[in-house]
Computed example of a mutant assay.
Amino acid sequence: MFKLKKLRHSATQKNTSIPYWLLLAFVLALLFAWYIAVDHNYRLILKSLIHGVATTLYVTFISFSLAALLGLAVAKSRLSSNRVLQEIASFYTEVIRGVPILVLLFYVAFVGAPQLVALCNFVGKPMQELFGWDPLKLRDFSMVWRAIIALTIGYSAFIAEIFRAGIESVEKGQVEAARSLGLTSWQTFRFIVWPQALKNILPPLGNDFVAMIKDSALVSVLGVQDITQLGKVYSSSTFLFFETYNTVAYLYLIMTVSLSLIVRAMEARFKAKSFDNEQ
């Protein structure tokens, strides 16, 4: 009993102690924030880039949410007893994971979007003639949503593998026991499989979310006014490349480190909760 209390105390102490790298990063962040406050050029750069933060976060959160939903559907299809669903999901996962995100962005923006607009006009032609609606134009399909669709498709394949591994980590005996008690497939997944799988998928899922924030910088090639695009425009007009990209890196680091800490806190909470449940 004394040994168990000592183990719990040491684990709690380890989780609450602040790592030295975080202290150093915090001090550097404060120093850079002070430098921005006292330097006129940095203040102008930050004022120009701050509008891109909202776009970056908007694209990231929407893309990741949609990618998580699509990834869960693909993972469930791969684990399905239906052979057709298995093969389709496997084909989707392997093909999408083999295509670079940048290529996928160009493909969706300049190949997929025109085809989708043409398909919508073809399907909706009777309604257009009936109500006198104008046909959908390609410019109505914003570059922001083209980027969101591309990131959703690209990351859904990786997230699907995370979900699949997490679901498979739950012992089959627990699933069989739940089904024998009369629980439906959905109830078994919701009350038995998902709570246990979540502990295993949270760290890699958090890593993918942080990676998507960084990869969202790629949407600047489509002209989306995110942090990177605004930094590119500002530096090319003022030739303050050093100061501008320092600020761009600073903004990305603030977002990624903050989200990494949130994910770690959630992970520690899940571990502590599972430890208490085992006792």
Rank of each mutant, 00 (worst) to 15 (best):
S216H: 10
V99C: 01
A109P: 02
V175L: 06
A160F: 01
S65F: 14
K76T: 00
I167Y: 00
Y234I: 04
I254K: 05
F241Y: 14
E176L: 09
V95C: 09
S235P: 01
T56Q: 01
R190S: 07
R97W: 12
A272G: 05
G182E: 02
A54F: 02
V248A: 02
F158A: 08
R78C: 07
V123L: 01
D226Y: 01
Y42P: 05
D276S: 14
S80E: 13
D140T: 02
I262Y: 11
R43N: 07
F270C: 04
V221F: 09
A37L: 11
A54N: 02
L69I: 15
S80G: 05
I148E: 00
F191K: 13
I227Y: 04
K14P: 00
I153Q: 05
L44V: 15
L57N: 00
P100K: 06
K172N: 13
L30R: 08
V123Y: 04
I88T: 15
G182Q: 10
F270S: 10
Q229G: 01
K232P: 04
V38K: 09
V59H: 03
I262S: 05
L66A: 06
N41F: 03
A165D: 02
K137I: 04
V111I: 07
L66I: 14
L23N: 13
R97T: 10
L136E: 04
A113D: 14
I262L: 14
F163E: 00
K76G: 04
